[in-house]
Amino acid sequence: MTELLIQTVVQGLLVGGGYALVALSLGLTYNVSGIINFAHGDFLTLAMYLALALQTAWALDPYVSTVITFPLLFVSGVALYWFLLRPVARSQLLMVIQLTLGVTFVLQNGILMVFGGQPVRVPSDWEASLLILGDSLFLRTPQVLAFAGSLLLALLLWIVLDHTETGRRIRAVHQNPRAAALMGIDVPRVRTLTFGVGIGIQAIAGALLIPGTPIEPGQGFRYTVIPLMALVMGGLSDFRGIYLAAILIGVTEALGTVFVSGTSGMIVPYALFVLVLLLRPQGLFRRA
């Protein structure tokens, strides 16, 4: 029993690390632009299918092909913000939401047209590799790598945002865009580039999540909703909170799946979400 519990919690931690990757990049794009991009998860799907295509065409391992998919995703993020979101950013919230939902539709159907609707697995050399701790704890190497990747990304974000001039500018744009402009910061430029980086990170997240995970065109919504929950639970602009919330969702999801009967186990993270909203609406770790 305790063995199963430990195995489940560890599994949940690792899955949560994957969610954290996507949640941090969602947090970055949201905080710099003020826009919730409902197509965020679909860019992860796009990154994964690009990795699949590169695997098929040139036998590139998904880890390696990020050197190609990152710039591609970065450019699509830049284009999305500059051509679609920036022009409507000042109009009604609902219109902006509609627009990003429209992007979801285009991406999902585009992928469906090109790759078909069957779930596929991207073959990877790492897929079957296991790390065995002690004599009973089995960890899938790709998941450990994804978790390590999420920690590294969190660290990198913290260094850049809190300890560089670029980060100081991004925080200024987030806290008061008007004042930032009056300081001589090119606000549209900062927003566009940061948005691009946020979408670009999806390429890295995609590569880290691919091994062993079947992919299908419609999966994006899940990778928007769960990170969005982490974002809200974490307190929107508290990256540490977002990270821990994502981990918590991973763990509760794993516990629910293993210990609560049938599909109702998947409800556990949502129940946690509602509970956090009721008890700590300002976010898990933020002072009210």
């Binding site: 001039e165 100081r168 200024a172 806290q175 910061i185």
Partner: peptide
């Protein structure tokens, strides 16, 4: 001013 930044960060941003 940028409320959730230090006085020093605010000043540094003025010279960014």
């Amino acid at each position: 001013v940028f409320p959730r930044m230090s006085v020093l960060d605010n000043l540094l941003l003025g010279g960014t």
